[in-house]
């Protein structure tokens, strides 16, 4: 097991280096000079002196590969640089934004599992029943529905017509009232994906020989499903949680923008719009590291939980 973990981490090193090169160099494809953009006065004039000073201060006058090495070195020391706009450390911005995104993701994740697990199981047990068909049609719709559209529809229904919930905003540090609509918006898509996965995993478990054996022994259907099938069907839930995490992280870009939720998704969109390069790089590195770590943890725990996989590799 430890060998496996070490191997996985070693494999990650070249990939992460490549990720860092991409994150660093991506912004140099962009037209427009950040120094000039940021030193443009309200009258639209650029002051060449302040542009020079800015370049000097931010190290933008050095050759590219030197800039990359300096950036990578700082990165390894946990220093993501300073936001061009606010002049505050990028890491501080990211920390604050991550808190908001994390809160939203956790609520959405619980919401999506609370919807998907029961529906997925019932659909599998009552395969091809009207209930199953309804659930799966609903799942198809949920997968295909643009989350920005769903968000706006919920806003229209609950925020404007029924006037029950605030239309947007973070409220008092992301309180319940403000989190409900963005969490439903984010959670619906992942609930649809999850329900399908749980249904097929449950169907697979129900088709196994040990289920037939249990039934042949005369075990009651309740025990067959609850004890034998369900236990095996829920193993992939770990993977599903990991998959969901990527889904939620990606969804946060749009959902946070619609609902004015001050998380990582909105931070990166705002930073792109004002070409705050340090912030864009910082966000990319942070989000990717997060994503890679979650996937690693999912892989490891999956092997740990499912003895079949563990023994296969040990033997």
């Amino acid at each position: 097991m430890i060998d496996y973990i070490l191997k996985r981490i070693l494999q990650l090193i070249p990939v992460l280096l490549l990720v860092s090169v991409v994150s660093f160099s991506i912004i140099y494809f962009a037209p427009g000079d950040p120094a000039e953009t940021l030193c443009t006065g309200p009258d639209g004039n650029v002051n060449p002196d302040s542009v020079e000073k800015f370049r000097d201060k931010m190290g933008l006058d050095k050759p590219l590969h030197i800039q990359y090495l300096i950036w990578l070195n700082n990165l390894l020391h946990g220093d993501l640089g300073y936001s061009y706009r606010s002049q505050k450390p990028v890491f501080n911005h990211i920390k604050t934004a991550f808190r908001a995104t994390f809160k939203l993701s956790v609520v959405s994740l619980f919401l999506s599992l609370a919807i998907a697990i029961p529906l997925g199981i019932i659909s599998a047990i009552k395969q091809n029943s009207p209930l199953d068909v309804t659930c799966m049609v609903g799942a198809s719709l949920g997968v295909s529905m643009p989350n920005f559209w769903l968000g706006l529809l919920l806003m229209l229904l609950f925020g404007i017509y029924l006037d029950l919930l605030p239309v947007a905003g973070y409220g008092d540090g992301g309180d319940l009232e403000h989190i409900i609509l963005p969490a439903i918006t984010l959670g619906t898509g992942s609930a649809a994906v999850t329900a399908r996965l749980i249904r097929s995993s449950m169907l697979e478990a129900l088709g196994q020989d040990y289920i037939q054996t249990a039934r042949a022994k005369g075990v009651s259907e309740r025990v067959v499903i609850g004890k034998h099938a369900l236990k095996n069907a829920l193993i992939p839930v770990v993977t599903i949680v990991g998959l969901n995490f990527g889904y939620l992280l990606n969804g946060s870009v749009v959902v946070e923008t619609i609902f004015g939720w001050p998380g990582l998704g909105r931070l990166i969109i705002d930073s792109i719009n004002i070409r705050d390069y340090m912030m864009i790089q910082g966000c990319m590195v942070f989000v990717t590291l997060l994503f890679v770590l979650v996937n690693l943890i999912v892989d490891i725990s999956y092997r740990y939980i499912d003895p079949r996989i563990r023994y296969e590799t040990a033997g």
């Binding site: 991506i26 992280l249 870009v253 990166i268 792109i272 864009i280 990319m284 989000v287 990717t288």
Partner: peptide
């Protein structure tokens, strides 16, 4: 594949 896809897409 290490990048969350939409983040990479909006940046590019």
């Amino acid at each position: 594949l290490s990048f969350p896809s939409i983040f990479l897409a909006v940046v590019i």
